[in-house]
Nucleic acid binder design. Structure first.
Lengths: 207, 207
DNA sequence: CCATCTTTGTCAATACTTGCACAAAAGCCT
DNA sequence: AGGCTTTTGTGCAAGTATTGACAAAGATGG
């Protein structure tokens, strides 16, 4: 398949899932896998996995399957997580604390390096060992460190304003935990992490 | 449109988003909206919104648009969140604490009613005011209260085992924060809340 | 009360996504 | 060495999803 055509975003969205499955297999000591095994693990068809991968190159060997370590490297490079992106978190609440303490990004290409809050009584305190900085300094820090990725964990009422500040400071990807719809320019990627919406989606099928 | 054909899951997945947007408009005091306004807010086409809604009935008035309060009620009923589902959380870590403290499900159809952990030193303690129960009691409590919805916030290594226990006890919807692929029977809904995967998806577009 | 404007609900066309099926490639076994 | 088995990568067909367009319905204003 041509290497230069535009890859559908839906395919990009599945790559992290494949990567996670590969990590799991690797941790179990396996060295080789097949599209069939991956498909069974993930509940998707083997053809889909082969087709998704074929957008980026040929990573398998016929008759053999895929070398897990090699495929991990390739997918990491494609997703640009073969490096460590520095991430800023805005909003020093319980959620920020959970993210810092549990560090779900460890080994996945991201590291939290700065934490901001606008509440005067929180500024200067520490949260899970990380100093809470004044939101007023946010643009300066983001620009100086060249940060591109932000996590938004502020109340819904402030989310849009903070998002605007982040965008103005040069942030290019925002993961928002605020339960409100945001508006950002088209060159900025935005994802919502909305647990309530996920539960609601499942509730439809209950009973 | 026929009321009884199967509704695509992708449509179901957008309903919570519409609901969230309506909540926002309502909180701003607006009483009427249109598919065009909603579409602009959410970055989708107005035709898509009209088509999605048409799977379930006719909720608007030509020339006028939609009554926000009425549409909220209808969508809540469709998603079955016009009631309050009791939710069990397994894994009394920082993430559970954040969920209990920030209560992102308030007014959205879900309420956390029980919290479990398997670590002996945590059992009996309180987390954000909620008692930590022994995982050994989990099946009993789930069955007695007839719980259908669970949130999984345990380490990846234990996630599959806990999921199996939940399913055996009668849970029908699982929201997993564990960064591992799970396997559940087809009648159980499963969603992953994987912030690392969301960031990785956006990273592809960086630079 | 009529003309004009707005907006819905839906059909049909377009665009996108998935899955089937198979040739080709590669290892394995005798 | 050759036949057998496995599994990839991909062309094509089938299946889904999105969008454009418009008749019909309803509001508004003179």
């Amino acid at each position: 398949m041509a290497r230069f055509e535009k890859v559908p975003d839906i395919v990009i969205g599945r790559l992290p899932v494949y990567l996670r499955a590969l990590t799991r297999l690797a941790s179990e000591g396996q060295e080789i896998t097949s599209s069939q095994q991956l498909g069974k693990m993930l509940g998707v068809s083997s053809a889909q996995i082969r087709k998704d991968l074929s957008y980026f190159g040929e990573f398998g060997k016929q008759g053999m399957g895929y070398n897990i370590a090699h495929l991990q490297e390739q997918l990491s490079a494609i997703l640009k997580v073969d490096r460590e992106w520095e991430v800023v978190v805005v909003g020093a609440g319980p959620l920020a604390e959970a993210l810092i303490r549990e560090d779900p990004f460890a080994g996945k290409g991201f590291r939290i390096v700065a934490l901001f809050d606008s509440r005067p009584e929180r500024i200067g305190q520490r949260l899970a060992g990380m100093e809470i900085l004044d939101s007023a300094q946010l643009p300066e820090v983001v620009r100086q460190r060249g940060l591109k990725v932000a996590i938004l964990a502020v109340p819904a009422a402030e989310a849009q304003q903070v998002a605007d500040t982040l965008v103005a400071a040069g942030i290019k990807a925002i993961l928002s935990y605020a339960s409100t719809t945001l508006s950002v320019p088209p060159e900025v990627r935005l994802q919502y992490n909305d647990a309530a919406a996920q539960l609601q989606r499942m509730a439809y099928y209950l009973q």
